[in-house]
Design a protein around this nucleic acid. Structure first.
Lengths: 181, 181
DNA sequence: TTGCGGATATATCGACCTGATATATAGTCC
DNA sequence: GGACTATATATCAGGTCGATATATCCGCAA
């Protein structure tokens, strides 16, 4: 039985507490989104697969006339999750359109490249602020230390990236000045 | 005309010099792979689309009996590329299975979580070494400063990440000791 | 009370992307 | 000549994203 990493996101999320597909999506957006996203297009089919495989169990719990299925993890699911946690991590990817544009910035007139770095910096700082807000909100409320450790890695990373942009902007401007002088 | 970011990778690559699909793939793997990857499954169909759109021009240049099409950028392609470079970057994604596992590491017995951080650190250090090797190899050979700037961002980032892993390992071990004591 | 907007809930689709695989030819080394 | 690697193009299953569709529920205001 081969499961995608997203399947394990679902297992991990319902392990903390039973959730509907909608709640899983909201939990992912509020937590792992920074380093592992998931969309409805993955979540709902995956819930069916995991349910058929007996790794989670769904039960109807409608709100009035609105149908709703809440899933909880099974003993098999828990075993599958911990077995996966013990395997060395494989996937490590990045897609940074800003770095891609900077890479080809030689095609722009001198002086325009700094705009790319400025836009990246503003973006990283905005993410940093969002993550800091989450940090303040959950500070001291959770007993499990690992979500907070990972959240802080995001805060440090976006801060590092913003600082790199600032330094690089200065570097590009200095080189342009030297080139002109 | 809507182009994917990967289409612009191709435009940027053939702008430096005419290349075959195979050579574009090799160039991507040697340079932008760290922050923007591309596979044959994207490159070959995209070359056809860009060629039909008149943004690149292909010419047959076989090696003996082995067919080979080399593409070069057109004036339209160059205009399209610089117009894209002037738009603010959109996509910024990360997929770090290690952080995902660490996030759920509370499901593991205490003491096992450090293994995840150790594996991530080893991996980041290996990438760092590869990037440094590229840096040494191309040092002083390229006039365009931007590829080197981007390469160094990768070197700094992997170094920062490895350092974060080291600090986090110590933090986890200290917490475990405190928990036991 | 009627209606509007936003939240909850599930489902689907086109497009993008990866990794693997298939098919051929060319060059190198023993 | 055979083994191996590099060059070159093509394809496919499956993962993933963003947007969209459908429907219900709730609070609030006209």
């Amino acid at each position: 039985m081969e499961l995608s990493a997203t399947a394990y996101v679902i297992l991990g999320m319902v392990r903390w507490e039973p959730r509907s597909g909608y709640e899983i999506k909201a939990a992912v957006d509020g937590t792992t989104r920074f380093f592992w996203a998931a969309s409805y297009g993955q979540i709902y089919p995956e819930l069916k697969r995991l349910s058929e495989a007996g790794l989670i169990a769904g039960s109807d719990s409608p709100t009035g006339g609105r149908r709703r299925t809440v899933y909880e993890i099974t003993a098999d699911g828990e075993a599958e999750l911990t077995a996966w946690l013990r395997q060395p991590p494989q996937t490590s990817e990045m897609r940074e359109e800003g770095l891609l544009k900077l890479f080809f910035a030689g095609a722009l007139p001198p002086g325009e490249a700094v705009e790319i770095v400025r836009a990246m910096r503003a973006d990283r700082l905005a993410t940093n602020a969002r993550l800091r807000a989450i940090e303040s909100a959950i500070e001291g409320t959770v007993e499990d230390p690992f979500p907070m450790i990972v959240l802080r890695s995001g805060i440090e990373f976006t801060q590092w990236f913003a600082d790199w942009c600032e330094r690089t902007e200065a570097e590009i401007l200095a080189a342009a000045k030297k080139g002109r002088g």
